[in-house]
Amino acid sequence: MLKKFTKLQQGLSKTRTGLVKGIGRILKSSSRIDENTLDEIEELLILSDVGLDTTEHLIERLREKYKDGIIDNEEEVFNLFKAILAEELNSSVSANDPENVINTKPHVISVIGVNGTGKTTSIGKLAGRYQQKNYNVLLAAADTFRAAATEQLSIWGERVRSDIIKTSPGGDPAAVAFDAVNAAKARHKDILIIDTAGRLHTKSNLMQELQKIHRVLDKAMPGAPHEILLVIDANTGQNGLAQARTFMQAVGVTGIILTKLDGTAKGGIVFSIQKQLKVPVKYIGIGEKPDDLQRFDPGEFVEALFQ
């Protein structure tokens, strides 16, 4: 636990430097909150991609508390703001650990998202995580569109010692998904992870293709996919909300993987997504190595932000 926590903190260190050091600086430089301070907090939140609506909402809450006279020193503001942020993230997250609620075999996970968010890399890392816990994982290369997507997943498969089901480029992704479910059953795999092609949520034909993949999965195994993970790049701006909303409407989303948190991007869009869509973030990606995928924990996340 402590180790995991440290790793998260390392990954988030730059996030922290931007968001929290900034807030810390503001709070230390003035002993009372005034409108200027709130303006500066607003700037910091917006610069973290929290979004204007959510930022205003958070500041309104801070301001109310301030009016109530609960705050009288900067440390309390600090704690209060931390509590507000954690609460925002907590209110929508179910306590279920997806890694412990595997009650079907195979447990089918579909991984979706727009282009270039890191789906394939996340799948490699996710498969590694499950393999480490002694689950037997099968990968399905259902991205038959992008050049060399299958090869990329194959290399990950070798790295984390998972079998892979694939087809020729341009093949039918739904067919791959179907075959993969049957193969998973036949080979007694615990978990099947399906890598879908990146698609912009605005392309209705591609979204239909995704719906078809999911229909076929359900046909091959009623109830599948059991988990649908949407991959969102932490660099994404306000469009992340539209992405999450559209994918949710099209196929439903059970969780989010927030990738590339090892850069300077803050991933603040998570606050808006959770507030408006109530989809929990389940994992964060903080590097390119197999073990650079961490469970997202709102408490830790906020706590780490404020270290």
Binding site: I46, L47, S48, D49, V114, G116, D233, N235, T236, G237, Q238, N239, G240, Q243, G263, T264, A265, K266, G268, I269
Partner: peptide, 10 residues
Amino acid sequence: DGMTGQDAVN
């Protein structure tokens, strides 16, 4: 990426 948020600048 055209969908990048505030960090595009950094």
